[in-house]
Simulated assay, not measured.
Amino acid sequence: MLKLFFGEIISMKKGILKILCISLLISLLLGGCAQSAATPTEDVACSGFETKKAEGDISFDYHLFTPEDGTDMPLVIVFHGYGENDISQNTKIVSTITSEESQALRPCYLIAPAIEDNIFLAKSNRDSMYSKLKEISDKLISDGKVDPDRIYVLGNSFGGLATIEFLESYSEDIAGAICMCPALTYSKDSTSDLSKIKDIPLWFAHAENDNVIPVTVSKSAYSTLKAMGSENVYLTTFSNEEMLKCGALTGYHQSDLAVMADDSFLEWLFENKN
């Protein structure tokens, strides 16, 4: 487990460096907006984003994206991978969903929590974070901003683990989810309640040769849900060629890049409704 865990950290740090370099270069060339990864708690200058502080049993920053039409809209919650808290607003998933092109097709609110390592590593802390995120989404609903029947969750790696756990905690509230190379082997409890989510539209995505979290993790969860009678669970695996084509490193632990390169995933996700 320790080998797997620290291997993921090393792989993710390399991936973070490449993502930061690419995103900063594009921002400079296009005159866009890029937030420094070293200052995640500063006010976000990008249009539509603001950074807030969640206070409670555990405290954390989160980035809230508000669409131009801010009433009765879908809400997307995005969990980043381990070690990505400093760039939680600039991950591939967040930048894709909040892009002008995507918002023109699928306008939505988006919450991207910045998850510190100590929160990710302790189940009790993760549970407290999920509870606070539920409070935040409930407030957006009560304010008339979010449609309670169109709440979606996505996550990559440790964020995939968080996706499954969040679904298990609030299974009746989620309309659909995409779970990418989930670190389900980190917590044995993460797959103990899969029966709770068998009726949630759920799409697993994983590189065939992911050398941090083996593809068998997603295959096992998928097979378990199918055996439970799930009729709306899917699994896509990506070849080395597909991963490299979308800009992933040779560790192949960045299935979020492949998913965001294929619009059919988001198209499917937003078609689901409670």
Rank of each mutant, 00 (worst) to 15 (best):
M1E: 04
L2M: 11
F5I: 02
G7Y: 06
G7A: 05
I10D: 01
K13G: 00
G15H: 03
I16V: 14
L20Y: 10
I22V: 07
L30N: 15
G31M: 02
C33A: 15
A34N: 15
T41E: 14
T41C: 10
A45K: 15
C46K: 15
E50Q: 13
T51G: 03
D57H: 00
I58C: 08
S59M: 11
S59N: 15
F60Y: 06
G70S: 13
P74R: 05
L75N: 01
I77P: 01
H80N: 09
Y82H: 12
E84T: 13
S88T: 01
T91M: 04
K92P: 00
T96P: 10
S99Q: 05
S99H: 07
S99T: 06
E101T: 09
S102M: 10
Q103T: 01
A104N: 14
P107Y: 08
C108R: 11
A112D: 02
A114V: 01
E116P: 04
E116D: 11
R126M: 04
S128E: 12
S128H: 05
M129K: 10
K134S: 09
I136K: 15
I136E: 06
I136P: 10
S137G: 07
L140W: 02
G144L: 05
K145M: 08
R150I: 01
V153F: 05
L154N: 02
N156R: 00
F158Q: 07
L161M: 03
T163D: 14
I164V: 14
E168Q: 15
S171L: 04
D173A: 15
I174G: 04
I174M: 08
A175F: 12
M180R: 06
C181Q: 13
P182Y: 02
S190W: 04
L194G: 11
K198C: 12
I200T: 06
P201H: 07
F204P: 13
T216Y: 08
V217L: 05
K219E: 14
S220A: 11
A221E: 04
Y222V: 10
T224A: 12
K226T: 06
G229P: 01
G229D: 02
S230I: 03
E231G: 00
L235M: 01
C246D: 06
G247K: 07
G247S: 09
S255E: 02
D256A: 05
D262H: 09
S264Q: 13
S264V: 04
L266E: 01
E267W: 00
E271L: 04
E271N: 06
N274S: 14
